[in-house]
Design a protein around this nucleic acid. Sequence first.
DNA 1: CATGAATGAGGTTTCATTCAT
DNA 2: TATGAATGAAACCTCATTCAT
Lengths: 207, 207, 207, 207
Amino acid sequence: MRAYSKDEKLITTRRAHIAECASKVFIKKGYDAANIPDIAKACGMSVGSIYRYVGSKEDILYLVINHGIQREKAFVRKAFHDTRSLHPVEAVKSAMSELIKSVDEIRDIIMFSYRTMYLIHPSARKDVLNTDKAIINGFEKLLMSGCKKGVFEIDNIHMVAQTIDVISQMWVIRRWAFRKICTLNEYIDFNTNYILKLICKEPYKPT
Amino acid sequence: MRAYSKDEKLITTRRAHIAECASKVFIKKGYDAANIPDIAKACGMSVGSIYRYVGSKEDILYLVINHGIQREKAFVRKAFHDTRSLHPVEAVKSAMSELIKSVDEIRDIIMFSYRTMYLIHPSARKDVLNTDKAIINGFEKLLMSGCKKGVFEIDNIHMVAQTIDVISQMWVIRRWAFRKICTLNEYIDFNTNYILKLICKEPYKPT
Amino acid sequence: MRAYSKDEKLITTRRAHIAECASKVFIKKGYDAANIPDIAKACGMSVGSIYRYVGSKEDILYLVINHGIQREKAFVRKAFHDTRSLHPVEAVKSAMSELIKSVDEIRDIIMFSYRTMYLIHPSARKDVLNTDKAIINGFEKLLMSGCKKGVFEIDNIHMVAQTIDVISQMWVIRRWAFRKICTLNEYIDFNTNYILKLICKEPYKPT
Amino acid sequence: MRAYSKDEKLITTRRAHIAECASKVFIKKGYDAANIPDIAKACGMSVGSIYRYVGSKEDILYLVINHGIQREKAFVRKAFHDTRSLHPVEAVKSAMSELIKSVDEIRDIIMFSYRTMYLIHPSARKDVLNTDKAIINGFEKLLMSGCKKGVFEIDNIHMVAQTIDVISQMWVIRRWAFRKICTLNEYIDFNTNYILKLICKEPYKPT
DNA sequence: CATGAATGAGGTTTCATTCAT
DNA sequence: TATGAATGAAACCTCATTCAT
């Protein structure tokens, strides 16, 4: 990504600012309908200034999508952070719950990324697509740990992890449909039980 | 949707043709990047001719999305058509298998519709969003029938039906990820078993 | 003016029809905003048929303007027709009154012609501009006759005739302003007296 | 009228420039036949620049017509400015003479405005139509003053004022015809005397 | 002779990007 | 470093005219 400025620190600061503000414009108007003057205004910068820190409109898109990814990753880290000391069932429950609540918070930017991802250059796109890996990895570890402890019994751990990830994505993508039939918490409960029923050796009874 | 021609039959034919050909252009380039001359060329028509049958570029988008919907609906009808005489478990298996194979065939237009839907006028959008209803309805009937026959035991039939729909959509949306870990048939098997495990009163053993 | 048809009589009939119907469209929408399909519809003909009797859109404009001229000329002939036996003062009064009432009837097409005249080819335009000559000539004769009879005394007969013509045109062009301050008949009275006061040797007293 | 620039002064300057230059193009080609690249070239600007100061082609038309109005208003103020100290007859003579000479100078833009006025939005059109009010008002004051001083005797002052206005408009609208029979000065003399003969109590004899 | 579908040049307008200040 | 006016390519759309049926 080209920048005319030489002050690396300033570049980083400004790019973060642009990502933050441009997100709102993109989410509201869509990538193509949003124009640079609009974005500049939202950033409180001039058009010319934007272009000192960014080489093109597509670069801004990349910043925005990455900004979303970073937020999501932070949520994911948090979701898995406190699960180590828990019973495997509780760990899965907690992680799924945290995760789905998190993606619900940033659902707008996630939706936007889904729609718009295909516009950015394939090499950059890879970063976006790999975001879920952290989630899937996290669950794989939880699941494996649960298997070792004899709580879970799973043929294809990776597939189950993928499915959990998919469940969280789906809340975002199909929110308009699910909202008609259940609340966020009901969605979480239903799907958590769903997964647990699938992987638990025997029904779990919390003490 | 405005048309300058008065020959209703011709309008229908040409619009179908435009939908067919414009689909390819939109899928390849995206809605905004595709321009009218490109579309005209793909249709083997002149720009002016396009506008005899269509009032705007957005109208073409509407035609394309609707064309996809119609194809999907045809597949859905076919998927449920031969399930009536089957054992509930076989019926669910067959319908899920047919459905996922179908959406795989038209995954490009489905993906495009997901991305681009938000651009069309809300009143038209409703048609798109309601497409899944047919699928969900179909499975609800299968599931209910299975419950009545004492084969299935389900708390929330609608939620399960939604989940099956989600599973089929997911193959499309995350195909790039699933392909790395399984084939289409493996995906179908995994998820079919997954659902059956969830809803069957007792393990099914085909005779 | 080119025509593909060879049947001279049909050409004349159709052109008259086109002039009649296209007038309404032009008056309502203006020349540029009116399009050929609209005109064809108003004529109850197909686009192709129009072009058998007319070489271009400009030709239609010419027909329309000429149509207006012919109507005006007929009115003018009528206005002067019954003035021969009258006293010069009555003759001028009658002719002015008839004339202004006439142009009021066809004010829309006159306004349109004024606006649009400049679009037609100069050679054709001449016909339009010369229309007033008949009016001016008519009044010149009346005025001269009045002078000979010792009723009028006029330095510049042509100028007075022009002025009378102008007065009639002005009712059309500035109708929106005059309507606020007087009726058509008051306008006629005011201006007739105005002219008579200017040209009469001594105040006229009808017997 | 939309503008993208925020520098109010620049907007004013540029719009004046556009009005000035676009006038020439519109007068020469007519509103519809003139295209934006032509206008831009005449302004020494790029097409994009034009649209920083103007929202549409119709806006340019509005600027051009308004530009003409302003010039006319300036002339009108000047025409009445030095008449206060004059004898009523001289005042009317002077004002009429100045006015007709003025409209002769800007006859092209006046003609264009008359033709094209109907294209602009009615609310904006009102401004154009009200321009004559200043002229009519000016003459009404002169005439009333002359009546009070016992020099004029007039039944309907407003109508006479309208007629004087009409006389000045006529030189513009029918210049092509009048030029064949008289010079501008002869036209002024003829019509001035004409009006004076109509309104003076007794023939005026300058000392 | 009548039709109206097809054509494609040309219209207005937008907007990412540059660069003089 | 910051600004925002200027650029002009390229977008969508219209419509006078033609010509196969």
